[in-house]
């Protein structure tokens, strides 16, 4: 099987899975959710950046949770299909990547159209500038899909027990979106007498949800509220090197679970 053939297969499987997922009621629901969230936040304020702040909460809250749950459910519900495809002369990593992109593409389409359509509906004339305000949100949204779908697949691959898999998904979500910040807050308060700027930079680089939130916040100029911390942050994150660090870190967050997933998938007995 040459590279070309592999890509063709990858494309084919992803395409059919996308086809299957895109009309699934969950993805439709997902689209409706973001459409409503975007529509409501745009209608509450005339300012796109304010709407983006409101939307940010929805994105940071829902995208990881939905990706984790939908990803694990999808794997468990389609295990017979996956086994069947595995009996074909196709390399396992190709199938794994196809599974991944077959989940990513429909979810990302639901998310993107949901967020962007209301912007178009509200003011088609200023679409480009509004789109620019939403761009950090969109980029991090896509990254969060990438990260948490690869987590979802990893969890499903290493756990045959559905309940355990769900539990683990919800735990990872809680851990990264709430518990981590709780520990973060406690740490900041316990060490309030020390200079904490770089400590907090490191802590936030280690959590993709925090990193996404900070990336959006910086781009929405809210960062000035952070006072001195903000200045350190702004200097750290808003130059090219900072951007590189943010995206390298986010990319590592995608690649680690993805590679682990492929590894376990390669060795897995079905």
């Amino acid at each position: 099987m040459d590279q070309n053939e592999k890509l063709k297969m990858l494309f084919k499987i992803s395409l059919f899975q996308t086809k299957s997922n895109i009309s699934s009621k969950w993805i439709v629901f997902y689209f409706i959710f973001f459409f409503a969230a975007s529509y409501v936040s745009l209608s509450f304020t005339h300012e796109t950046s304010k709407a983006a702040v409101n939307l940010m909460n929805a994105v940071l809250f829902i995208v990881p949770l939905a990706s984790l749950l939908y990803g694990t459910i999808y794997f468990y519900n389609n295990i017979d299909y996956i086994i069947f495809i595995l009996s074909f002369p196709v390399k396992r990593p190709v199938i794994y990547i196809s599974l991944f992109s077959g989940l990513l593409i429909p979810m990302a389409i639901g998310f993107l159209t949901g967020i962007i359509l209301p912007v178009l509906l509200f003011n088609a004339n200023s679409f480009l500038s509004d789109f620019y305000v939403f761009l950090p949100l969109i980029i991090t949204g896509i990254y969060l899909h990438l990260i948490f779908i690869s987590f979802a697949l990893l969890i499903a691959v290493i756990n045959e027990n559905k309940l355990l898999g769900f539990g683990l998904s919800i735990f990872i979500w809680l851990l990264l979106s709430v518990i981590y910040d709780g520990i973060f807050l406690i740490a900041l308060n316990s060490f309030a007498d020390y200079p904490l700027e770089y400590f907090s930079i490191i802590l936030s680089v280690l959590n993709p949800i925090d990193l996404s939130r900070i990336f959006i916040t910086i781009n929405l100029d809210l960062v000035t509220l952070m006072g001195y911390t903000g200045a350190v942050f702004h200097n750290f994150f808003s130059n090219i090197i900072g951007c590189l660090i943010i995206f390298t870190s986010l990319t590592i967050w995608v690649l680690i679970p993805l590679f682990l997933g492929i590894r376990f998938f390669n060795k897995k007995d079905f």
Partner: peptide
């Protein structure tokens, strides 16, 4: 002040 880094977080 440094806790402001958690501004807008779900927690």
């Amino acid at each position: 002040r440094p806790t402001l880094i958690l501004l807008n977080s779900i927690l």
